[in-house]
Design a binder for these strands. Structure first.
Lengths: 185, 185
DNA sequence: ACCATTTATGACTAAAATGACAAATAGGAC
DNA sequence: GTCCTATTTGTCATTTTAGTCATAAATGGT
């Protein structure tokens, strides 16, 4: 859990330290005091809530950083190829070559986009889509199906909640266009 | 009885180690010194009391009282049998029947104990142990291998970082004893 | 016994809290 | 616009608390 000092907040808000302390004392900004002699600390989440409530500009440090992409493909070559494209496009990319890693990275890395190979041995890609849509809390996650399987199978994944599908093989340009169309905000 | 070092407390409170030592020296935070050269230890209960007394935020690790158990087994019957035992013993139990769920639940449910079936089709249990020990941040996670495979395979998992192993089939009593021995604080 | 990591300590520097007071700002009334 | 007033914010000096650094010691693991 990250916390901020009154001085840090003063810099972020471009106000005097004295003012921040008064905000905290008056309860406008939620904080707590260290045992020592009462130095203030504010939880990052409370600070962000404070900024939002008062419609203050959000400092760059707290802007949601780079867009994250999780690449799920058991063929490392393919995964790396995708990763090159996404990384070059400015996304932070992580590769999962087995379903366990995929699950672990989905809930810890929290990507905005997941590319998913449907035809992984021993894995049911449909179940992954189902999980992401039913048991996973970030509904804004974009799922891009990448598969050598036929149109029918890819459509089935879309029906389950995937956002788009791309047949293998694909060109880098196709891939990039598809991803960027999914990630427009 | 679980104890904390000054460094751990520093991290939990997001404060410098030096400051924690001063809190202890001044008596604000109750602790005791090891015989060696005076390294500090603080009882978990004293730390929690300290947090409460000073209205400090309680770290996530100390939030939920209940101990969480993740059961990874593709055979739902077996998983449910384990779940019955752990639930009855007072643990909060969750079942993952495929590796993707297992990964997702490990990093979101954040169990203190994971039971792991080595012989799941299409999944390499060893990779899961490796992931948990190398790429997962909670090193205090206990891993209990449950497998019908031979002693040798189970030993291999232990070598990779699992904490204990139990051959299939097992009695409820064996299971419970093993789990509780892993979770003693 | 050895090593890497963590912790303790003192001295010092940096940062924060506080009160009193000055300056700036916002909103009304004219 | 000007004047007035209430509220908020900034400044300053001082005291207290927290962080940094270097070094020595202890701890944990192999």
């Amino acid at each position: 859990m990250k916390t901020l000092t009154s001085g840090e907040i003063a810099k972020y808000c471009d106000v005097n330290l004295r003012t921040v302390i008064r905000w905290i004392d008056s309860g406008r900004l939620k904080g707590y005091k260290l045992p020592g002699g009462g130095n203030n600390r504010v939880k990052e989440e409370d600070f962000l809530a404070f900024l939002q409530d008062n419609e203050l500009p959000i400092p760059a440090d707290f802007q949601s950083k780079e867009t994250r992409v999780l690449i799920v493909d058991d063929e490392l070559q393919v995964a790396k190829a995708i990763s090159r494209v996404t990384t070059r496009a400015g996304f932070k990319s992580v590769i999962a070559t087995d379903p366990f890693m995929a699950g672990a990275l989905l809930t810890s890395f929290k990507p905005q986009l997941m590319t998913l190979d449907l035809s992984m041995p021993g894995v049911n890609g449909y179940d992954i889509v189902k999980f992401a849509r039913h048991d996973y809390d970030d509904k804004s996650l974009k799922i891009l199906i990448i598969s050598a399987l036929g149109e029918e199978q890819r459509q089935q994944a879309l029906d389950l909640g995937a956002d788009m599908s791309l047949p293998k093989p694909f060109s880098n340009k196709e891939l990039l266009n598809t991803i960027e169309s999914l990630l427009v905000k």
